[in-house]
C-alpha cells in the first residue's frame, strides 16, 4: 500500500472542477476534482448529502455535468452515455437496485458482458474466483438473495467487462461486519489485479484503511485530500467526518 507523495504518474480517470445536479438551478456537486491514477484505489468519504454518489453518477453520465471535465486516460468522456462508457472501460456498481431480480445469478453476470460475449467463460471464471458464493448460487434467482449477496452479484457483473476503472457506490452498505471485511479485501484484490477503483463509502474508517488515497467531500466540494492513512491520523478528520465511536 504505497502512497505516492506527488501526483500519480499516469492518470486513469480524472474529474476536474465538476459541477452537477439533478434539478435545474440546484447544484449538488459544486466544483469537485478527483483523480484516479493507473492501478490506484481511491476512496471518497463525507457527510450525508455531500454529493459523493452524485459525483460518481456524474462521472458515469447518469447526472448531467454542467461545468468541468471528465477524462478517461486523457480522453474527454464528459456527459457520454453509460453504454459508451462501459464499452470504453468504465464499470459502475450502483448502491441500490443493482441486480435483475428475476434473472439467475449466472444470467445477471452474463448481462454484464453482452457487449463482448466471446470472453464469457474466462470472465465468469475470474469473477467466480473473487466471489465463490456466486458459484454456489449461480442458478438461484438474484431476487431471492440477501442484500449482501446481491451486492456481490452487482460487483461481479461490472467486472465481467474487464473495466479499466471501476466506480463503486458504497459496496459495503448493508453487509454484516464479516462480509464488510470480505468485500473490502475483495475490492483490494480486484485493485491488485490491475483495475483502478474509485469507491464512495460511508464506512469511512474501513475505506481509508484500504485506499491508497482518499477525498473528503463536504457540501459538494473537496474538504480534504490525502493518503488514506494520513487522513485516518488527522484528528480534525476523525472528529468531523469519522466520529469517535469505534475508537475505544
Amino acid at each position: 500500500m504505497t502512497a505516492p507523495d506527488d501526483e500519480p504518474a499516469e492518470v486513469a480517470l480524472s474529474a476536474a472542477d465538476v459541477v452537477a445536479g439533478y434539478l435545474p438551478g440546484v447544484d449538488i456537486v459544486n466544483g469537485c476534482s478527483v483523480e484516479v491514477g493507473v492501478g490506484e484505489l481511491v476512496g471518497i468519504i463525507g457527510p450525508n448529502g455531500a454529493g459523493k454518489s452524485t459525483l460518481v453518477k456524474a462521472i458515469f453520465g447518469l447526472v448531467p455535468v454542467r461545468r468541468g471535465r471528465v477524462e478517461l486516460r486523457g480522453r474527454d468522456i464528459t456527459n457520454q452515455a453509460a453504454d459508451q462508457l462501459v464499452a470504453a472501460g468504465v464499470g459502475y456498481v450502483p448502491q441500490n437496485n443493482n441486480v435483475f431480480p428475476s434473472l439467475t445469478v449466472a444470467e445477471n453476470l452474463e448481462m454484464g458482458l453482452y457487449l463482448r460475449t466471446r470472453a464469457l467463460a474466462e470472465r465468469t471464471a475470474f469473477v467466480g474466483e473473487l466471489f465463490p458464493v456466486l458459484g454456489a448460487r449461480r442458478t438461484q434467482r438474484a431476487g431471492s438473495l440477501s442484500g449482501g449477496e446481491r451486492q456481490m452479484v452487482a460487483m461481479g457483473r461490472a467486472l465481467m467487462m474487464d473495466p479499466t476503472v471501476l466506480l463503486l457506490d458504497e459496496p459495503s452498505a448493508g453487509l454484516s461486519p464479516r462480509f464488510q471485511s470480505e468485500v473490502f479485501s475483495r475490492v483490494r484484490s480486484v485493485n491488485d489485479a490491475g483495475v483502478s477503483i474509485l469507491m464512495v463509502e460511508q464506512n469511512a474508517r474501513r475505506c481509508l484503511q484500504v485506499c491508497d488515497r482518499a477525498y473528503v467531500l463536504d457540501q459538494g466540494r473537496n474538504a480534504y485530500t490525502g493518503p488514506g492513512r494520513s487522513l485516518l491520523d488527522d484528528p480534525k478528520v476523525v472528529e468531523l467526518y469519522l466520529g469517535t465511536l469505534a475508537q475505544a
Binding site: 457527510p47 450525508n48 460511508q202 468531523l240 466520529g243 465511536l245
Partner: peptide, 8 residues
C-alpha cells in the same frame, strides 16, 4: 447504514 459516522 448509509448515515455518515459523525452523525451516527
Amino acid at each position: 447504514a448509509g448515515v455518515n459516522p459523525a452523525l451516527t
